[in-house]
């Protein structure tokens, strides 16, 4: 997969966030997007995933030479962001099965998946309302792993995670890149920045 941004302009009212932004993101690489608060890191992720339309310029996704339709790209995208919440009244397993089910994915090895993100078999049965912020972040990441998407949009993925959690996240990102996934990271964490293949500083 390849995502190409050409001459992208985006403004919110009088505030121009991007003007003439050109970038290419390729499968098998991690790109870290860094910058101060309000610089547009999360917005750039939304643009790359076509969750947001630019005011000018173009954003296209390709599989080889074939341009992907909006719906196709959406089906091949997974995301994790502070603004994305899970259902408090459902258990962790119900949340995971629900979001995986929306992508026609059946999770067979639930215990294995939860263990990969550092959650226990006991955590699987808990309602999400009982989860700590860090545990919710791990569960959101488990959903990203479960759906098997080709494009990962990770906004502050290490936020609220302990040292072991951040290390797990970086290991899984490296593994995904090895499987030719395209990973975009919006981050201000030096360890995530250091782990990326490419860097965009806003």
């Amino acid at each position: 997969m390849r995502i190409v941004l050409e001459g992208v302009r985006l403004a919110f009212g009088r505030a121009v966030l991007f003007d003439g932004l050109t970038a290419t993101f390729e499968s098998g690489r991690t790109t870290a997007i860094v910058g101060a608060n309000g610089a547009g890191k999360s917005t750039l992720l939304k643009l790359a995933g076509q969750f947001l339309e630019p005011d000018a310029g173009s954003i296209k996704a390709f599989d080889g030479d074939r341009e992907l339709l909006h719906a196709e790209l959406r089906r091949r995208t997974a995301a994790l962001a502070p603004t994305m919440n899970l259902y408090d009244r459902l258990t962790a397993t119900e949340n995971l099965r629900f979001f995986a089910g929306l992508r026609d994915v059946t999770v067979d090895d639930l215990d294995g998946l939860f263990a990969r993100v550092g959650l226990t078999a006991e955590d699987e049965k808990k309602l999400v309302v009982e989860y700590s912020t860090g545990m919710k972040q791990r569960l959101k990441f488990a959903i990203v792993l479960a759906v098997g998407a080709d494009l990962w949009l990770l906004d502050e993925p290490g936020a609220n995670l302990d040292e072991a959690g951040r290390s797990m996240m970086l290991k899984e990102i490296a593994r995904a890149v090895g499987e030719r996934k395209l990973v975009l990271l919006a981050t201000n964490d030096p360890s995530e920045e250091a782990a990326a293949d490419d860097l965009i500083r806003l």
Binding site: G49, F51, A71, R74, R75, T77, A78, A79, A81, T83, M84, N85, L86, Y87, D88, F99, L102, R103, K140, I143, V147
Partner: peptide
């Protein structure tokens, strides 16, 4: 509750 954003990512 903020679940709408998550739904928009994963659901058609």
């Amino acid at each position: 509750s903020g679940t709408l954003t998550t739904l928009k990512v994963y659901a058609d």
